[in-house]
Design a protein around this nucleic acid. Structure first.
Lengths: 204, 204
DNA sequence: AACATATGTTAGCAATGGTAACATAGTTAG
DNA sequence: CTAACTATGTTACCATTGCTAACATATGTT
């Protein structure tokens, strides 16, 4: 079945062109941005003809969507991992998720932008939205825990949203090099902690 | 001199091609996004050959930068206008600026994205940063007023930054259609007011 | 009137996303 | 084992795009 086989180039068939194209695309996108990225480049890097990708992706957008989806998944995993190093359901664990969010954006700015630019993904919006919801759920559960709520109710949702907004904005400002427009050194870690404290209602 | 003349097509010379190209580009960008925008389209819309723009703009990027710059300017003007309808130096006037910010993003999402996507503007980053600083100053002055600070000192800067971050994040989530990921109806106006209240220190 | 400058045109280039027709490898049926 | 089928690759080609070069026309200055 679809087990991850060893990549055996027969010279004609490639082995795992789909995976290799995704890898190549991710690399190129982080180097030159999603706009500067071309299918042709990815093909050159993977060592195949420019027509080959269309056996695996219906279009350039389709490939980009795949990368966005993967990114959204990894973001959720990162957040959970970072939070799990703190006492659960605390300001600290929630702030840790925020740090993971911004850290992801700074580590892979172009992928991050891709993950959230709806305009690009005509076709697979619903699929991406689903994956996004999954990663957002990681935050929701942490906030529910903090609030002592038994499940994801409206209170949890209303509390979580401004937290998301905050780190999302911070991420974009950071990757777009707007932090020095503020004319004073912004410490990102501090910003996240302070905003998290202010936006969370104090809880017993 | 460079006064805005009536646009007289002689049939060959155009009158104000530069201005018309900017207008055409703005229209096309809001219709199809900055990626879907092509120089050729703008030329067709302006009724000139595809080589004509290069007498007025060194490249496609240069034209886009011009539009970004104009957008940043208009954003600052919008913010000032909306704030001036409130009592100055209050939570209300600051929230009004936030509303103007998000409203701009929703009204011209593609231009908004362009305004903040550093990656695109290789050449004119410094110029754009300068204009951006100008518009940011509108918020800074309002916050200084609120805090009773005589000038833009570090306290003002530290207070203003999370406010910017918040509305910036909200703007992006809104234009990227991510508000329904939260599974509950987000009232944008409310969100802004609540976040502004929480992020501003209470002041006598 | 003559010249310099600004601004437009046509012709053409290389790169790109995508398709069609063909080639080859791996898989399954008889 | 071979034949047929399917999956996956290739070459050839197309329209579009950003941009440049060489040429044409208008405007303004002297």
């Amino acid at each position: 079945m679809a087990k991850t086989e060893i990549h055996k180039k027969t010279g004609y068939h490639h082995g795992d062109l789909r995976g290799e194209l995704i890898a190549a695309a991710r690399q190129l996108i982080e180097e030159h941005g999603p706009d500067g990225f071309s299918m042709s480049d990815a093909c050159r890097l993977a060592g195949v003809s420019t027509a080959a990708p269309y056996r695996h992706f219906s279009s350039k957008q389709d490939l980009l969507s795949e990368i966005a989806k993967d990114g959204l998944n990894r973001l959720g995993i990162d957040m959970e991992a970072r939070a799990s190093k703190q006492a659960r359901g605390t300001v600290q664990s929630i702030a840790a998720m925020g740090r993971a969010y911004v850290a992801f954006a700074r580590r892979e700015p172009h992928t991050f932008r891709l993950m959230f630019s709806t305009m690009s993904h005509h076709d697979r919006i619903d699929e991406l939205k689903q994956v996004g919801r999954g990663s957002y759920g990681v935050l929701l559960r942490e906030v529910a825990n903090y609030l002592g709520e038994p499940d994801i109710n409206e209170t949890v949702l209303r509390t979580s949203f401004p937290l998301w907004t905050q780190v999302h904005g911070l991420s974009f400002l950071a990757i777009d090099g707007k932090l020095d427009v503020t004319e004073f050194p912004v410490d990102i870690e501090d910003s996240i902690l302070i905003a998290t404290e202010r936006l969370l209602p104090s809880v017993p």
